[in-house]
Design a protein around this nucleic acid. Sequence first.
DNA 1: TCAATAGTGTCTGTTAGACATTATGGA
DNA 2: TCCATAATGTCTAACAGACACTATTGA
Lengths: 222, 222
Amino acid sequence: MRRPTFSVDVVLLTPLDRHLAVLLVRSPEGSAERWSLPWSLGKATDATLEDTASRVARSVVTAQVAWMDQVGAFADSRRHPSDAELSIAFVGAVPVGTLTRDSDDSAWFPVVELPALSPRQRAIIEASTDAARLKIDSTPVAFRLLPQRFTLSDLQRVYEIMLGRRLHKASFRRALQAATLVEPTDEWRSEGRGRPAQLYRYAPKRRRRVRRGLRFDGISLN
Amino acid sequence: MRRPTFSVDVVLLTPLDRHLAVLLVRSPEGSAERWSLPWSLGKATDATLEDTASRVARSVVTAQVAWMDQVGAFADSRRHPSDAELSIAFVGAVPVGTLTRDSDDSAWFPVVELPALSPRQRAIIEASTDAARLKIDSTPVAFRLLPQRFTLSDLQRVYEIMLGRRLHKASFRRALQAATLVEPTDEWRSEGRGRPAQLYRYAPKRRRRVRRGLRFDGISLN
DNA sequence: TCAATAGTGTCTGTTAGACATTATGGA
DNA sequence: TCCATAATGTCTAACAGACACTATTGA
């Protein structure tokens, strides 16, 4: 039997409770690992790699994928469930509360508590969460992970989970205001104790391109 | 004849004159395009994709490659010189003044004046220059594109060429000082007219992690 | 002397983050 | 009433960018 050339592996992320979670599917019986990333080999009906990745994503969740990006090609000599020598990885995110299609054979796992996985897929998840953080940081995709109406605390929580760090509340709101990305509605929501929060909706206005400079800060020396 | 599975394409960049340049090699006679990116199919002696990319890089320049990163997999239905259905792209940079190994069959082209290329390779170059800007911005690789001793104007020029935009002189030097990445030597260099410039060397001290916040600025709305 | 480049000092507007305070509900 | 959460105002340190100025060479 001819060996498959490459697989397309999909890392679907979602904020779950207070952590970032990744969707895994149950491996066929007899595999060394019980779980794996959803993947597929390319089909003739897929014109592009993106098409293949979208098909894989649709096969495991019903919800709309907020965005999807290619992460790269992984070809270390490590074992992979498809037996392919090469895996092209994609990362995407789905809205808060998205359920898996098949609750028996797929589940969300916090990225900090992953089960045994093939080493290559573990590397893929690592690179994918990094890519997701960059994406969240540079484009307004967080809004697509929430319902139409959301509180600013909801939004901040999504950012914090995706970025993996706490944010300053006042700064968060100021930055949001300056970017004119959201609009208050006249609805409020009471959530247990505490003052009810105003609901907002995503309503991006025009850009304020500021283009602020060079930062040697971010440099990670080697 | 069986169709090759995938190629590894390498985008080597260097600052040339006032522009960013990419190394292209002459295509075999009879190709539709005269030039192409250097590429190779994987060999049994290559343990990883990175090894293949390094081998390709070494085959076209003698100089040390300052760094190399994978850009991604490109598989649009576009034509590629290797006839491979898939190309894995890598981007790297070589020091200012690096010559091509074979001056007859390879040459530096400013990225703004590329010759006819296969559409896939054109897309690869586009994505690679973006990746290179990110890299330059976030890690101190610019220093590896200069000789041991360099002037701050040299360094700023490298940054400007790689980033594709002008930088503010005073801010550039302040940021550099704050990051404690360079150290003045007691040498000066006179370059035609004007006051001679002091020579510096790369001497990174420890980091000052400041971790300054969330910026909705950078968001590119869609 | 002039032209060109190197290198610095000062000022200002912006903003991240700290801190404090008020507002408003549920328990 | 107490407590938890929402929302906002003020202050400060950091910093990017503008501007101006001095320094030092070759032509």
